[in-house]
């Protein structure tokens, strides 16, 4: 009784539970959407980790979400791999959004090879980001990608249908795109913090 303890000492000793983790001071992998960066615990994409993006339908706005990151990386002369995209990337459209297409490799892979190719690219350590559209990826396959992303220090993005939202996922970040009156993104899971309750609106638009 009467003993005075410095609050800092208690916190450093990890004896006091924080209701909310202290936000990291600005992530090194910003998403390019300031409102989204603000709600993510790492201040951007989780580094060297897997991000899962759940879509209600193809073409809903998944590239709008990703292209600022692809543009930033390709401008810095880093390699980006696009594995088994559902459609052809339209060069004019990507370049209009500042992507350097010579830094982007499009890999056509069969259904069974998508995960293999994604893992190889992630593990190699020579790609900055890997965008993959796997078919029927299960929990184990995603975990492999997560480990590969960590080994190769790369950003991994996996696009899947919204119906997979009910399954547990080893991804460090899970986002769900919702298209209503306007496009918004809901954080389903994020490592290092609680997911925000409300969805984050993306400036929807086609230009």
């Amino acid at each position: 009784m009467g003993q005075v303890l410095a609050l800092d000492a208690l916190i450093h000793a990890r004896q006091v539970w924080h209701g909310r983790a202290t936000p990291a001071p600005g992530g090194s992998q910003p998403t390019g959407w300031s409102q989204l960066d603000a709600v993510l615990p790492s201040g951007g994409w989780p580094e060297h980790a897997l991000t899962e993006i759940l879509l209600p339908a193809d073409g809903i706005g998944e590239l709008q979400l990703l292209l600022p990151t692809v543009a930033r990386l390709s401008r810095a002369a880093r390699q980006v791999m696009v594995i088994a995209p559902p459609y052809l990337p339209c060069v004019a459209g990507w370049e209009a959004r500042d992507v350097v297409m010579s830094q982007v490799d499009i890999v056509q892979a069969g259904e069974r090879d998508v995960l293999w190719a994604a893992e190889q690219c992630l593990r190699s350590g020579s790609c900055a980001a890997v965008l993959a559209w796997p078919h029927g990826a299960d929990d184990r396959a995603l975990r492999r990608l997560q480990v590969a992303a960590d080994t190769g220090k790369a950003l991994a993005f996996v696009f899947r249908d919204r119906r997979h939202a009910v399954q547990a996922s080893p991804a460090a970040l899970r986002l769900e795109l919702e298209a209503g009156a306007s496009l918004q993104v809901r954080v389903r899971k994020c490592r290092g913090g609680n997911p925000p309750i409300s969805a984050v609106p993306l400036a929807a638009g086609w230009s």
Binding site: V104, I106, V107, A117, Q120
Partner: peptide
Amino acid sequence: AMPLDQLRERLRARLGEDAIQQLR
């Protein structure tokens, strides 16, 4: 890191000669 060329060769070896494209 594995050199990028080596990665491309490895992918081509399994996925086919034209599996990797760069569009312009």
